[in-house]
Design a protein around this nucleic acid. Sequence first.
RNA 1: GGUUUCUUGGCCGAGUGGCUAGGCAGCGGUCUGCAAAACCGUGUACGGCGGUUCGAAUCCGCCAGAAACCUCCA
Length: 504
Amino acid sequence: MLTVNNDFVIFNTLSRTKEVFKPLVEGKVGLYVCGPTVYSDSHLGHARPNITFDLLYRYLMYLGYKVRYVRNITDVGHLEDEVEETGEDKISKKARLEQVEPMEVVQKYMNSFHQNMEQLNVLPPSIEPRASGHIIEQQLMIESILKNGYGYESNGSVYFDVEKFNQKFDYGKLSGRNLEDIIANTRQLDGQVEKKNSFDFALWKKAAPEHIMRWPSKWSDGFPGWHLECSAMSTKYLGEQFDIHGGGMDLTFPHHECEIAQSTASLGHETVRYWMHNNMITIDGQKMARSLGNFITLQELFTGNHPILKQAYSPMTIRFFILQAHYRSTIDFSNEALQASEKGLERLMNAVKTLEDLHVSEKSSVDVASFKEKCFDALNDDLNSPVAIAHLFDGVRMINSIKAGTEKISESDLKVLKSFFHTVVFDILGLKPESATDSGESEILKGAVELLIKLRNDAKANKDWATSDKIRNELNAIGIEMKDTKDGVEWKKASPRPSPKERE
RNA sequence: GGUUUCUUGGCCGAGUGGCUAGGCAGCGGUCUGCAAAACCGUGUACGGCGGUUCGAAUCCGCCAGAAACCUCCA
């Protein structure tokens, strides 16, 4: 059994085991993660890998590594159906439907993706290369694959010769399959006359006359195959060998398998040392996917504007929800689960606030050091954020007990506890306090609500419960929640909920 | 059909040979004019049937159910 002390251990899909992470270059980490194809609004599914690898990025930085984090934007070459020759580029299709330029589609959805990521407090990567900006690099890679004999040209398109590659290397090693199985189980479809074998994949596609996104090449006016961009751009920015490649589990085959094949075919060796894959988000036990018609966009989640949503969920609630499951497990979406996360997060954040006004004692009755250690042990063990969070809740109880006076903490321990909480909650888990009153009208709203609170306090002082309750109830009805605490009245805007009409 | 994985208390989710994660809900209590909120306390659950073992939710086998990949997907 693997014991975790100070080593950071991650699960490598390639070996199917947890391995101690050792970077190629001392003190530095090269990290590549597959980014989105920007042809529509980003959805709940996009939150998972981006938050997972944001956690990894943050944790590596916490460990003191200088990290170069590359996450691409796919803005060309991702076909609607890779197998059918009739497959249309996703972005071209959207552009045709919306009657705009493909690059307008790209810009629009890239912008909204960036906005959503910022809302989720996902740090921007160090480099965010776009496939369309690296056509030359991709063409050069095709040339070297051809030169090494692992590709062939056919009617202006270039395909990767999987069978040839498999004679010398192992096609299928990442996804755990072998070519014989793939041959036995691949659908034979019409219209594949260009390819030697159905499992060969495109490196360069000759563009049909109506295809808008096209670049000149020695083979044809066309565009690069989807898998190629990641091989070309990861090598360009991280070198011929780099530390970690991440992405969603659904990309393992064929996308990442093809990446390995391309890089190996052109360079003669593999580039990636650790492959990491996050699991999927499910809805009612089924993967969320556009094709299944059960996807929810992030914008819909944040506003609550979707038939299956009982309320809006804040970006931090989504983030916390995702962090409460291990990244290699599926996580099942439901209103109940999201509401549980919302409340749990609030409890955690309140404790962080409480940390600021704890009274110190001469000696501690709590064990801050061992609590801290347990938390980092969990993170070191393949980024086990749910266990780390479970320990944080032990810390919450600790903080509340100190506040209540049933436990004591020394000044030095409190200092440690505070900095620990801030580091883990804000820097590593990437959570941030959310205030419901930061909109433009907040100053006016604030003044009005505080006036009403004053009136209510007067009524309370006069034991005029009818008036005081009326103010409370009516504010409540318009979505302002009040709490009578020892330190006075606190209030906040409740999470926006769709009106009953909208919910129908 | 092939490959792989999963099945944990009302819900979500960790763990993975003995030391009963955690959150939410529920229940009890503290607080409060009342309420809400908050806080404190509280739950021995691991699909079924066999086997291995001193001991299994954890390992093995079979059965049942579900999912993912094999086709675009995060």
